[in-house]
Write a protein that binds this DNA or RNA. Structure first.
Lengths: 375, 375
DNA sequence: CTGAAAGCGCTTACAG
DNA sequence: CTGAAAGCGCTTACAG
């Protein structure tokens, strides 16, 4: 019976009406609690008629399973926890969506928890996941020091998406190949005719380090070692703005900028505009991540795209597989990024007037509106 | 004792080592389970020495409370569920951060769950929250029909942030005043000298409806009823692009566009550029929401800012208050939005050459770089 | 200040 | 195919 809508509003945390339990269902269906549990759980050997009666009774009572009781009784939760480090980073939404979809497909629940600037809060959130006894954790970034990482993964398997992590037991990583991605960016710029290509970097994280390395290696490979210029930046709009302002103010400024991520690239775009320069006429700009934002028509940012959907899906698949007892497999998986050429890259202004057009090498995708080159 | 790191990797969902329970702590500290529970829960009348011994034992054992058992024993979870409808909408991150911070301050846990395009998935996620027996729900948007909404809120109090909801018991809403916000936008444009101001709308949602109403009312108030033009759009980049393309292609196109949200405004910016027009030289554009994205230096979008932080904080405060037994109070709270003037609005090109500068009326904030007007 | 006991709502062998 | 019983890890009156 549904609670009377006209009952005086109750106060405090106690539920209005005691919720029905399997005991109530059992009484109504005239069977034992055990059978109710079996039927609700979809166990095979319950007589069809009995099962239906139980299901009907549950329906009529408005029964809703109590996850806590279930977890306690079954000794497992079938839920995986997702830790999100930076909700403002546009890649988070795509990753999370993919993770959730795959987990659902495999019949695991997910609960997400978000960190913020505060490192202590991050640990508290992770701790919360463990108190809920999630069976595994997927981290969309994190900033735990090595020691703490081990403490957590000792209790439940985890996969971190984004950066590679090696040597931590029960921790696997799922990332794109940042070195190769950086190379894609440099190759594209070089194919367009650029030589003075600078990199606005992201600081000390593993991801930033790999993109920086990839940039350096690619420059050397193209015989452009003398033009290697790494400018301090960050993964934010502000960082990109500052980095670009600085490098563009120097003598003999670069004709192209490879930026550590899309968000920072936005800041770079602004810095370029603020100096009265045109993109891509005077300076080409290329970001990293392949966020939706980069593809927004007002931006048209050329970028190195991570296979976000695949990263999320595979991370979840990997974790669920582990939980089902599949063998661990390789601790690190690295997917291949692709280049998405849009409107912020073009041949440098004052050279190769009849030079090579937009480079479209292997793995190159063009999207996001016509590639109108202002030059 | 920590598990030996060299033990053969266990398989399957069963935890490596049985986690310590309060019973283990009791044994180690030489007291009863009850006392352990009391001490861990911070109960006042436990002898200081005993308490310390218990805490030490817990520490040494690497004890971690089991949320499920706690919930079952205490008949409450002290957790509130947050439902997120659209992770891609930039306002979500700000709102979520504020909600979480306030909940933590009041000693409530939060768990978040995200919906996606699929309406069935949305219900499943909400259902999941209820299975976890969250004590309250905060919804960052939703698309449940009225009936379903009641079914959920009958079980636990909820506050939806964003749109106003009236007449649903136990459901309160926390929103910004969209009508007033739309008016702010129109007033600003009118103060700049615009008359042909069109609105790119957001469709059939309550939020879109209120912003549309506010626009119409403000236009009438300024004696510009004849110029009222509402163009079909949506809350996305694409919607804005299409709407703007359409209205700009007409004869006697508007000199200013008030767009339903920041994301759609980006599309509008692109559409304007694609027609070879300049912003704000030929067309002024103003968005809504006050997202970080709008403030990104590469964009500099003028926008009506919702007090996102306050919305999130107050929603959480309201809900927690309810849970602590505070009286319900008003079912709808509407906060006042403010205007943030940046670089996409300016006086119309061909009139008032020496007209009024950027209007800075009441409640106007200027931010995000110098307000360089291209005109 | 402390302990024994009951109970929360489920699941899962174990017997029929 | 079905039921009685034990147990999961906590909390909370209720007695000392």
């Amino acid at each position: 019976m549904p609670p009377a809508a006209t009952a005086p509003a109750p106060r405090g945390p106690t539920p209005k009406t005691p919720r029905p339990t399997i005991r109530d269902i059992a009484a109504r269906a005239g069977v034992s609690k055990s059978l109710v549990s079996l039927a609700l759980g979809g166990a095979p050997r319950v007589a069809p008629g009995t099962r239906q009666a139980i299901l009907d009774a549950a329906e009529e009572l408005g029964y809703r399973r109590n996850a806590a009781a279930q977890a306690l009784g079954a000794h497992r939760t079938r839920t995986i926890g997702v830790f999100v480090l930076d909700l403002h980073n546009p890649i988070t939404a795509d990753l999370l969506q993919a993770v959730q979809a795959e987990a659902r497909r495999r019949d695991y629940r997910t609960i997400v928890v978000v960190g913020d600037e505060d490192a202590a809060a991050e640990r508290a959130e992770l701790e919360k996941l463990l108190e809920f006894r999630v069976e595994g954790i997927i981290a969309l970034g994190h900033r735990l020091p090595d020691g703490a990482r081990e403490a957590f993964t000792a209790d439940c398997p985890a996969v971190v998406i984004g950066s590679q992590q090696e040597g931590v037991p029960h921790l696997v990583s799922m990332s794109n190949d940042d070195v190769a991605g950086a190379s894609l960016a440099v190759d594209h710029l070089v194919a367009l005719g650029h030589e003075r290509i600078a990199h606005i970097d992201g600081g000390s994280s593993a991801v930033a380090r790999d993109r920086r390395r990839g940039y350096r290696a690619a420059m050397r490979r193209h015989g452009l070692a003398e033009h290697i210029t790494v400018v301090k930046g960050s993964f934010t709009d502000e960082g990109g703005y500052r980095g670009a302002s600085q490098v563009l103010a120097g003598s003999d400024p670069p004709t192209a900028l490879f930026v550590v991520n899309d968000l920072a690239a936005l800041g770079v775009l602004a810095a370029v505009a603020d100096r009265g320069l045109a993109v891509p006429g005077d300076v080409s700009v290329i970001g990293y991540d392949g966020t939706r934002m980069a593809g927004l028509r007002a931006l048209g940012l050329t970028t190195v795209a991570q296979p976000l959907d695949e990263l999320g899906t595979r991370a979840a698949a990997l974790l669920c597989g582990r939980l089902e007892g599949e063998p661990p497999g390789s601790p690190v998986t690295r997917l291949t990024p692709t280049l998405v050429v849009r409107r912020t890259t073009a041949p440098p202004a004052s050279r190769h007037p009849g030079g090579p057009g937009p480079g479209r090498g292997r793995g190159v995708t063009t999207s996001g509106g016509t590639a109108r080159l202002k030059a």
